[in-house]
Design a protein around this nucleic acid. Structure first.
Length: 320
DNA sequence: ACTATTTGACCACC
DNA sequence: GGTGGTCAAATAGT
């Protein structure tokens, strides 16, 4: 295990060195993206290994934040009348994900409703509590906690608790998607604001006229039709140059357009009028990239595609 | 009017 | 008794 950690650390450092040697002006955005992806993967893997998350875990991908089996799943099945006793018997496994960027944190494709916030002892920032919007309608007991990192205020630590028992689709969850909140450093969107794309740091200019375009593009990236069971979370961070319109900002929408995603597969062709929250949701949803049925989708598919302008996602695999 | 967020209070756990 | 998680009334936003 120690050797493995050392190797991962080595790879992590090498990837960072490589990143430093690449001239952003000469390198394709894809290279920058992939390198950042590598670093992110190493970072997560190391964290998982150091925290012992893999002990007793099923052989899932190292790059994903595997659920931690804190207690028997049998407890998950308990039905407790007293709401306060639910804490005792609710699903005990948790997932943690670090999300780069102070905007659009935790936009993972599910709709969440904030139900509380607490100052945590020893933490510089309060912890926000969210539960699935469909808690009452569909009895979904999934919750998550969002807390700004003490070490790096630009990072957020998100802890997921419980599995979604609801099935959320872009069309169904858009209206209720968690609003951006000032307390979480998520300023409300306004025309001209930069909003995160993919929720890993990339941003692009939000313009009223872009709405339709975004509606057409973002669903392709939103791994929203998330399976109930798979909640591994992937953190992908774009380097600063990419945040500043080099990759997805401004004219870089061309890049997204060039990917030619079959948006009709998501049912967005029928409803191009989305609310602001719809947009933020759609855009940021892929925070949990590995929420896909593949369990570890990552962007390996992008690797294979080498950013071929003609590349298309096989959505049948991701969204079925 | 409806929905989401805020926040003080309550409760379980350690 | 302290702390964290949740509830629910009050408040804000649309």
């Amino acid at each position: 295990m120690e050797t493995l950690i050392n190797e991962l650390n080595r790879g992590y450092e090498l990837a960072k060195q490589l990143k430093r040697h690449i001239d952003p002006l000469e390198s394709p955005e894809s290279c920058e993206f992939l390198i950042q992806k590598i670093i992110s993967t190493y970072d997560k893997s190391i964290s998982m290994l150091n925290s012992g998350d893999l002990v007793g875990e099923p052989p899932k991908s190292l790059s994903a934040g595997s659920p931690r089996s804190e207690a028997s799943e049998l407890k998950d099945q308990c039905q407790i009348g007293d709401v306060y006793k639910k804490r005792k018997t609710s699903p005990r496994w948790t997932e943690q994900v670090r999300v780069c960027s102070g905007k659009g944190i935790g936009d993972d494709g599910y709709t969440w409703r904030k139900y509380g916030q607490k100052d945590i002892l020893g933490a510089n920032f309060p912890r926000a509590y969210y539960r699935c919007t469909h808690r009452h309608v569909r009895g979904c007991l999934a919750t998550k906690q969002v807390q700004k990192s003490d070490e790096d205020p630009s990072m957020f630590e998100i802890t997921y608790r419980g599995r979604h028992t609801c099935v959320q689709t872009p069309a169904s969850n858009g209206k209720e998607f968690a609003k951006l909140k000032k307390d979480d450093c998520q300023p409300r969107l306004q025309e001209g604001d930069q909003i995160p794309l993919f929720d890993f740091g990339a941003t692009f200019q939000l313009k009223t006229e872009d709405m339709v375009i975004v509606d057409g593009i973002c669903p392709s990236f939103s791994f929203l039709s998330t399976p109930i069971e798979s909640q591994n979370v992937e953190t992908i961070s774009f380097p600063e140059p990419l945040k500043e319109n080099h990759f997805l900002g401004g004219d870089s929408l061309e890049f997204l357009s060039s990917l030619e995603f079959p948006i009709d597969n998501f049912g967005f062709g029928e409803n191009l009028q989305h609310s602001e929250s719809d947009l933020s949701e759609i855009i940021s949803a892929p925070t949990s990239v590995t929420n896909s049925p593949t369990g570890n989708l990552d962007f390996s598919s992008l690797d294979q595609a080498d950013f071929d302008p003609n590349f298309q996602f096989d959505t049948s695999e991701f969204f079925c």
